Simulated assay, not measured.
Amino acid sequence: MTAKNALNEIKRNLDRHVGEKILLRANGGRRKTIERTGVLEETYPSVFVIKLDQENSFKRVSYSYADILTETVELMVCKDEGQVRVTLSQGHDA
């Protein structure tokens, strides 16, 4: 699979989860991992936006689909039956 096809597949996977609660794990630099929850707000051709849950305010962050491909960012969709990791290989799950 080419990189472009892989990125398109990741975008399609995320498109199915717009509006759902997400657990985000991202590389914060200097061996720090940032873990936050929020809502997958929108997907665009090159990036996706997450509206983070914060005390008393909201903040938006955006990442590229390549961040998921390179595992710089991990997304877990929070569902009633548990968490589902968003990856390249889950594209054909229900």
Results as ranks from 00 to 15, higher is better:
Lys51Trp: 11
Thr33Met: 11
Thr43Glu: 04
Ile50Cys: 09
Glu71Ser: 03
Val73Pro: 00
Glu74Tyr: 05
Tyr65Arg: 00
Arg31Leu: 08
Gly19Ser: 10
Glu42His: 14
Tyr65Lys: 00
Arg36Ala: 11
Thr72Cys: 11
Asn27Ile: 04
Glu55Ile: 15
Leu24Lys: 01
Lys51Ala: 15
Gly19Ala: 10
Ile68Val: 05
Val73Gln: 00
His17Thr: 01
Val18Ala: 07
Lys59Ile: 12
Asn27Ser: 07
Arg31Thr: 10
Leu24Asp: 02
Arg16Asn: 13
Asp67Ile: 02
Pro45Met: 08
Ser46Met: 14
Glu71Phe: 02
Gly19Ile: 14
Ile22Cys: 02
Tyr65Glu: 00
Arg60Tyr: 08
Asn56Glu: 13
Arg30Ser: 12
Arg31Asn: 11
Glu20Val: 13
Val49Leu: 14
Thr37Gln: 15
Glu55His: 07
Thr37Glu: 15
Leu24Arg: 00
Leu69Arg: 00
Tyr44Met: 15
Gly19Met: 08
Glu55Ser: 07
Ile22Ala: 01
Ser62Trp: 10
Ser57Asp: 06
Ile34Glu: 05
Thr43Gln: 03
Asn56Leu: 07
Glu20Trp: 06
Arg25Cys: 06
Glu55Ala: 14
Glu35Ala: 07
Ala26Lys: 02
Val61Arg: 00
Val18Met: 11
Phe58Gly: 14
Leu23Val: 11
Ser46Cys: 10
Gly38Lys: 01
Arg31Cys: 09
Arg60Gln: 14
Glu74Trp: 06
Lys21Cys: 14
Ile22Gln: 00
Lys32Asp: 09
Val47Asn: 03
Thr72Tyr: 11
Ser64Met: 06
Pro45Ala: 11
Tyr63Val: 02
Leu52Gln: 09
Arg25Leu: 08
Val61His: 01
Tyr44Ile: 09
Arg31Pro: 03
Ala66Leu: 04
Asp53Ile: 07
Leu75Trp: 02
Arg60Cys: 09
Glu41Arg: 04
Ser62Asp: 05
Gly19Asp: 08
Pro45Ser: 13
Glu55Met: 12
Phe48Lys: 00
Ile68Glu: 01
Ala66Gly: 05
Asp67Phe: 05
Val49Gln: 05
Arg36His: 09
Val39Asp: 12
Asp15Gly: 06
Thr37Lys: 12
Ser57Gln: 10
His17Ser: 01
Leu69Thr: 02
Pro45Glu: 14
Gly28Trp: 12
Thr33Pro: 09
Thr72Ile: 08
Asp15Glu: 12
Gly38Gln: 02
Leu40Met: 06
Glu42Lys: 14
Thr70His: 09
Thr43Met: 05
Lys21Thr: 15
Gly28Ile: 11
Tyr65His: 01
Asp53Cys: 09
Thr33Gly: 07
Glu20Gln: 11
Glu41Lys: 08
Leu24Val: 13
Leu69Trp: 01
Ala26Tyr: 07
Thr33Trp: 12
Phe48Val: 03
Val39Leu: 15
Thr72Leu: 06
Met76Gln: 09
Ser46Ile: 09
Val47Gly: 06
Lys32His: 13
Thr33Leu: 07
Arg25Lys: 09
Asp15Val: 14
Ile22His: 00
Val61Asp: 01
Lys51Cys: 15
Glu20Asp: 09
Leu24Gly: 02
Ala26Pro: 04
Asn27Phe: 06
Ile34Trp: 10
Leu40Tyr: 04
Glu55Tyr: 08
